[in-house]
């Protein structure tokens, strides 16, 4: 978590002090790339949950893609809130650090939920999907 806080402060200093257009463009591209990748991974998650044949494969899509896309979109939000602030005051930095805290909690909590669900499915009577077309 200390790394998060340091990263936020570093980004805040860079975005607020260096007004060179190239630097600002790079920061914008960073935010947009993070947001776009997050949306792409969430799209992949949705398609995976819809299209995969059985529970285990669906949870594979949901567990990984969901956590990663959440982390990426929240990162974009945090960086954008720092960059768009006119003056860098206490409230803005605190909000950005709080968003990074959410990332940490999701990073712990979401895989735990996925693990618990996988175990519940594994202990019950769900048959894993097998690709019979290639086997025969």
């Amino acid at each position: 978590m200390a790394i998060n806080v340091l990263a936020v402060i570093l980004f805040a200093i860079i975005s607020q002090t260096i007004h060179h257009p190239t630097v600002q463009l790079i920061l914008n591209i960073l935010i947009m790339a993070s947001l776009g990748l997050g949306l792409f991974f969430f799209f992949a998650t949705s398609v995976g949950v819809l299209r995969f044949p059985d529970f285990f494969t669906r949870l594979h899509a949901a567990g990984k893609g969901d956590t990663l896309s959440t982390i990426l979109i929240l990162l974009a939000c945090s960086l954008f809130s720092l960059k768009s602030a006119k003056t860098l005051d206490q409230t803005t930095i605190l909000a950005a650090i709080k968003i990074l805290l959410i990332i940490n909690f999701i990073f712990i909590g979401s895989p735990t939920a996925t693990h618990a669900l996988i175990e519940a499915g594994y202990n019950s009577e769900i048959d894993p999907w097998e690709n019979n077309a290639t086997r025969n």
């Binding site: 529970f55 969901d66 959440t70 959410i102 999701i106």
Partner: peptide, 16 residues
Amino acid sequence: IDRIVAVNVIGTKSIV
């Protein structure tokens, strides 16, 4: 349990 998976994803996305 498929429904739980989908609801779990919706819950995480509502945070976002």
